[in-house]
Design a binder for these strands. Structure first.
Lengths: 208, 208
DNA sequence: GTCTATAACTAGATAGAC
DNA sequence: GTCTATCTAGTTATAGAC
């Protein structure tokens, strides 16, 4: 296993857990069992390392998400919103094959990127992967054409917030579900819980 | 104006904007135009300062929220979920009288507290202000008694996520609404947009 | 490519004069 | 209660030997 990958593997777990600001290069390199200087040698800077961590996941997720949403849009019959959100399940869970706890780590990273470092990751995703976002809004529009572009903007953002925030604290939620309700859930279980919620939210009556 | 309050006023804005980890005591004291050592003199540590910032808001919000939710629970007729969530509007907007942009700042701080510093603020709120949470779950239970305690737990967490995440990035959202849709919204407008969404989410059909 | 050593800087916290 | 000066420990990043 290469030094570069050792760094990426250690960094993503620490970033997901403690945020980008909250994780030092020293923690990463000692966890990865490589020399401190290796990060700057292989990636140039901490910021570039963050981009590399996210890109590795996006390159895995993006094509699968595009084809799942694309299939939904090209069907003859109109999809419903639960179908649209359900299209995310397989691509997201596939990240668990790519990497242990990959789904959970990726979604936590996404949440960190939105709140840490004042939205630099939002910029990164929207400029580097705009086709994923376009695919999604197309699918939602097909499922719910009455929704205006502005309403769509608001509701998609609320949905993003729900998912990302839930996943940022998914470990705590899984612990609470076990201790308070004696219910053993994993990340797939959390995703299945959240889909009816966001689908209903997006489909809510429009009040003016 | 006392040094203590000057520090609190400067700290809350910086914390909301850049997170707790992302804000140094040096930034706070220079913004507040007080000496660096004053934070440790008046608050003991950075962590205690964070608690003091949150307490100032919670002490303002808590009683108003309790009476608004209490009124709803003591009514003869069953409230609906939109009423329950709408009970938050006045107490939250009242924070704007207490402090310029108080509503926005408080909700951003809440979001920071959930994601920064590995949930220490969640612990702080649930242990220091449990009656606010109990009031809310009672009101939701009265509006939607079919929801099991476990479903309630999940959906209230999703709701918290939606609100808090939305407010963390409310400035960006308000900018986008203006530039892309020529719509001028303020923080009250964002709250009114989000209520139908979360009410529908909480009221979503239960799938097992 | 990988290492040690260290530069250059920033963090939170404190001792002690006033 | 407020200041300066400083301590200790942390940070990212780099120069240069191997």
């Amino acid at each position: 296993m290469s030094t570069k990958n050792k760094i990426l593997d250690a960094a993503e777990v620490l970033f997901a857990d403690k945020g980008f600001n909250g994780t030092s290069l020293r923690e990463i390199t000692s966890q990865a069992e490589v020399n401190l200087a290796a990060v700057n040698y292989h990636f140039g800077s901490k910021k570039e390392l963050i981009k590399a961590v996210m890109s590795r996941y996006m390159n895995e997720l993006g094509p699968r998400l595009e084809s799942a949403l694309g299939a939904l849009c090209s069907e003859e019959i109109k999809p419903n919103l639960v179908d649209v959100f359900s299209a995310f399940i397989d691509p997201l869970l596939h990240l668990n094959n790519f990497k242990e706890n990959g789904t959970s780590i990726f979604l936590q990273l996404l949440g960190r990127g939105y709140t840490d470092s004042q939205g630099f990751l939002r910029w990164f995703l929207t400029t580097q992967y705009p086709e994923v976002i376009a695919n999604f809004t197309d699918a939602v529009h097909k499922a719910y054409p009455e929704l205006s572009a502005e309403e769509m903007f608001w509701r998609l953002h609320f949905t993003m917030g729900t998912i990302v925030f839930t996943m940022s604290s998914s470990e705590a939620l899984i612990d609470i579900a076990l201790s308070d309700f004696d219910r053993k859930v994993d990340i797939a279980g959390v995703i299945k819980q959240v889909i009816p919620y966001v689908a209903a939210g997006v489909a809510a009556p429009i009040i003016r």
